[in-house]
């Protein structure tokens, strides 16, 4: 199933301050889209627009697919990992994953949940409340949550934040798999986070 991200004339203004304007790009098939820019250039804002949780001041961003459309639309196609995305801390890792499957309308599967937790090396802590997790463990759980529905587009905002060497290796393996299976979108300041890219959106010159 071929999938495309198409953005045209994106402009975002917050409190009369233009964050970026004139952003247009198109990505199709498997590959990596890099969103680069200094602090405050609007990387996270652009990520939120792509994920459909923020409406741009002007322009549009569409996700197009050749295959049958999932009834839940963009939510079914995108998985997001970002520092500003929070987990339900009063629940355990397993409960968060079960909840995520239910919220997405899927019948929850303990096998899928345990497989994902095993992949991010959190299976031993699966019944522990997330409140007691370190920031690195929470970041790993966010990856499990983002992959629960096997998204065609995986969006990573500062993908390595709070991760140790083992966590970084896990994320590199997830990124490698995604770039061949679908579209990987990475928003970062640190280009060592990413092993090459196909399309770059640089927000430094987009005011």
């Amino acid at each position: 199933m071929a999938i495309r991200i198409h953005a045209e004339g994106l402009r975002q203004v917050f409190s009369r301050r233009t964050i970026f304007s004139g952003i247009s790009f198109s990505v199709s098939g498997a590959g990596v889209l890099l969103i680069a820019g200094r602090n405050g250039s609007g990387k996270s804002t652009l990520v939120k627009i792509l994920c459909g949780v923020l409406t741009p001041t002007a322009g549009w961003a569409r996700i197009e697919s050749d295959g049958a459309q999932d009834q839940f639309g963009r939510k079914a196609m995108i998985g997001l990992v970002a520092p500003y995305l929070q987990l339900y801390e009063e629940f355990s890792a397993m409960e968060n994953l079960r909840m995520s499957m239910n919220l997405r309308g899927y019948r929850p599967s303990d096998d899928v949940s345990r497989g994902l937790l095993d992949r991010v090396a959190l299976d031993a802590q699966r019944q522990d409340p997330v409140r007691g997790f370190s920031s690195g463990m929470k970041q790993r759980l966010k990856y499990a949550m983002a992959l629960v529905h096997r998204p065609s587009i995986l969006v990573l905002d500062e993908p390595m934040s709070n991760l140790d060497a083992d966590g970084t290796a896990i994320v590199r393996s997830i990124m490698h798999e995604q770039r061949t299976a679908g579209i990987l979108v990475v928003a970062t300041n640190d280009l060592t986070d990413i092993d090459g890219w196909d399309t770059e959106v640089n927000l430094n010159a987009a005011r």
Partner: peptide, 16 residues
């Protein structure tokens, strides 16, 4: 307050 509104937005339809 907990910052989970976006987590919910990304997963479930608004009507749900």
């Amino acid at each position: 307050e907990r910052g989970t509104a976006m987590t919910l937005q990304l997963q479930a339809p608004a009507s749900a």
